[in-house]
Design a protein around this nucleic acid. Structure first.
Lengths: 210, 210
DNA sequence: TTGCATCCAATTGTATACAATATTTCCATT
DNA sequence: AATGGAAATATTGTATACAATTGGATGCAA
């Protein structure tokens, strides 16, 4: 059954898969036909996307998928760095041993899936979400969730080759070690470095696409 | 003319004024009658409130205004501290001289309005928003905006007497001084202290209300 | 009195119809 | 040929009607 919530998620997936490109218009009628529902649930899904910042909505004109400038991409990663570094700092205090084991497992699975970029991306996302949730702050989780939706506007992962996966899992391991030893400063610093490396790769990828 | 957006803002105002109490149900039909519109724009406004976390929405049951636990209030302020301290750090680098003058003016106006808590609250909000925007990060501004909406769930200001206003404007002045001298660390530290004092007062106020 | 099943009222979820507005097209005028 | 403007079209905004679901009320039986 297609409900408003599932349509919202479907649209997110469509953005992620590239079926909906940043900058393109979101026509209510088209989407309604596409999903086989009326315009009402589509409108509500679009409103949610709008309040998350994925969609620019001009009254009486319509919605279009936001297209991020290079400057905005930098700001997005700057904000992501703040949230993830903060989360790491808090997680160093609050993470349960079960969560620490989960992080280790995810990192190993990610390494072993190195040849499949899509699978790697999934494990990577779970890894970061696990850290965020280990911080034990609902508002932080909520903000991160919204921000991570904006991230999908950037398109496919930057985890495209095995060398890169190796680097990333190494950085993850540093973070895990810091979390295990409970050292706030090290954990947040390791995450900051991880994020900087991630932005570097992202900007290179953008450059290639342009 | 009452459009979806203005209805959304009206509901926020109703929460702020106390007309809508946390925990109460938001009945679409009632709100529609109250604003003299159909249910459609009401539903969309509620969807926006939901995605900002102000409203809990159970399918087929309806929406109710979120009621924050004491623990959640602490988490809210913890997150607010992160965002505002980060903003102060960035603003120490990016704030324009015009923005710095604006902050000084707002702080003076706030001090002079000390006998009118509502006016004080307005200047206070503008002060903090100005710092956030001085950070020059759209995603930070967006997150803070959403978070500040959750803050209104807590009800009226804690700026209820002149002694308290004096303390707050003093703290603001420290922040301004740090921003003017461009020292990241001092600015973020001054903001952290300001936020801690603010949480202390908030928790006392909650205690009294209970 | 309590437990349970059933029905009814209240309320949300969706579809559709209509109104208002923006955009485009095309023609007349310069 | 360029430009301005008016009509036509496309699209969103809102209202309303109907379907689906929930929560409670009612009544019956143990």
């Amino acid at each position: 059954m297609l409900t408003t919530k599932s349509i919202y998620e479907q649209i997110l997936l469509s953005i992620e898969s590239g079926a909906l490109q940043p900058g393109c218009r979101l026509l209510e009628t088209d989407l309604a036909n596409q999903f086989g529902v009326s315009r009402t649930p589509i409108r509500e899904a679009i409103r949610t996307l709008e309040s998350e910042g994925l969609v620019i909505h001009k009254p009486r004109v319509g919605a279009e998928l936001r297209l991020l400038t290079q400057q905005e991409i930098v700001e997005l990663y700057e904000m992501r760095t703040v949230l993830e570094a903060t989360a790491s700092e808090m997680a160093a205090k609050h993470a349960s041993s079960s969560e620490l084991r989960t992080l280790e497992t995810l990192n190993i699975q990610m390494f072993e899936a190195a040849t499949d970029p899509n699978e790697v991306a999934i494990y990577n996302r779970q890894f970061h979400i696990c850290i965020i949730n280990s911080a034990r702050n609902r508002f932080l989780s909520h903000s991160y969730n919204s921000l991570s939706h904006s991230l999908i506007l950037l398109g496919k992962t930057t985890l495209e080759n095995e060398k890169r996966v190796q680097d990333v899992t190494d950085q993850h391991e540093k973070i895990i070690d810091a979390l295990k030893s409970g050292s706030k400063y090290e954990a947040s610093q390791a995450m900051r470095e991880h994020m900087e490396a991630s932005l570097d790769h992202r900007l290179k990828a953008v450059h290639i696409n342009v």
